[in-house]
Simulated assay, not measured.
Amino acid sequence: MKTHVLTGATSGIGAVLARSLAERGDRLVLLARNDTSSAALAADFPQAQVLLADLADPGTLNGLGRQVDGPVDSLLHVAGVVELGPVSRLRLHEWEEQLAVNLTSPAVLTREFLPHLRAGRGLVMFVNSSAGLTANADWSAYAASKFGLRALADALRAEEMEAGVRVTTIYPSRTATPMQEKVHAQEGSTYDSSRWITPETVVSTALHVLDLPPDATIPDVTVRPVVPRPGT
C-alpha cells in the first residue's frame, strides 16, 4: 500500500485525485485548513490521516512531517488560490495570500516531508497551471506564484536526483473546477464547464506519472483542450 500526502482534497482536481487514490486502497495523508474542512475530509475519507495546517499561514506547516510515520511515496501539491486584477489595483494581502498558498507553503511542506520521500524514493508532484508558463494581463500575482513554483520544482529536481526523489510539474490549462468558476466571475464572463478540460483528465495524467516504473520520470507535462480557446 502506497502513502500519498495531498493538499487541496476538498475540491476540484484534488478531490478527484484523493478519491481515485482511496478507491485503489492507497493510504492518504490529507491537509485541512480548519476544523470544518477537517471534519469534511474525515467524513469523505474515513481511512485517511487528516492534518490541520493553513497554507495561507506557512508557519503552521512547521513540524508537520513529524506527525507522519514511515516512508512517503508521493507528495501532491494541488491546492491553490487565485485573485485576478491589474498590478495597479492588487492589494498587498492578495499578493501575500497567493504567494503563501501557491509557492511558500509548497516549499515548506516539501522540506517537511523530504526525509519521508527520500526513504520511499518518492515523487513530488506540483499541479501548476498554464499561468506558470505564460503571464497574461490581470494574472500578475497568480502567474508570479506559479512561475516561482516552476522554479522551485526545477531546483528541487536537481537537488534530490541522487536521493532518488523524482519531481514532476503538471501544467493544466483551464479546468472545470470551482476555482475556474470563480475566475470567470472575476473576468465578468459566462462560465461553461463543457469548454474546459475536466478534473478527471488532469487526474488521469497525474496517475500515469505516479504509476511510472522506477526507472523513468516525466519532469514536466502540459494538459490542454483538444481545441484551444482564447485565454487558455
Rank of each mutant, 00 (worst) to 15 (best):
E159V: 09
R150W: 09
A153N: 09
P172L: 00
S173I: 00
I170W: 02
H184N: 09
R118G: 09
N128E: 07
A185G: 14
T169M: 03
S130T: 14
L149F: 03
A158R: 13
N128I: 04
F126H: 13
R118P: 08
M179W: 01
L156P: 11
A163E: 15
A131Y: 08
L133I: 10
L123R: 15
V127I: 15
K182F: 04
L149G: 02
V127G: 03
R118L: 08
R174Y: 02
R174Q: 11
Q180P: 00
G120I: 03
G120C: 04
F126V: 06
F147P: 03
T169R: 02
Y171Q: 01
A176S: 11
K146T: 04
T134A: 15
A155E: 12
G132T: 07
T168R: 02
G132K: 06
S130V: 15
S140D: 10
A155T: 11
S129H: 03
A119H: 10
L152S: 05
A176R: 01
W139H: 10
K146R: 12
T168C: 14
V165D: 07
S145T: 05
G132V: 08
D138G: 00
H184E: 07
G120V: 05
A176W: 01
P178R: 05
K182E: 14
G120Q: 03
V127L: 13
A176G: 01
A144P: 08
I170K: 00
G120S: 05
M125H: 06
V183D: 01
A155H: 11
K182C: 00
A135F: 04
T134W: 13
A137S: 13
A141T: 07
A155P: 10
I170G: 00
A176V: 02
A176L: 02
E160C: 13
N128C: 10
N136E: 12
V124H: 06
R121C: 10
M125I: 13
S129N: 03
R118S: 15
V127F: 07
T169P: 01
V167S: 01
T168S: 11
A135V: 14
G122A: 10
R166V: 03
A153W: 07
R118C: 08
R150D: 14
H116K: 10
E162K: 15
N136Y: 11
W139R: 09
T175W: 00
A176Y: 01
G132R: 07
K146Y: 02
E160L: 13
L156I: 11
A131I: 04
M179E: 05
A155D: 14
S129Y: 02
A137Y: 12
E162S: 12
V165Q: 08
E181K: 14
M161L: 12
R174L: 09
G120M: 03
V165S: 09
L123V: 12
K146M: 04
N128F: 04
R150N: 11
F147N: 04
A131F: 07
V127M: 11
L117V: 05
P178D: 06
E160R: 15
N136C: 11
A155Y: 12
A131V: 08
V165N: 08
R121V: 04
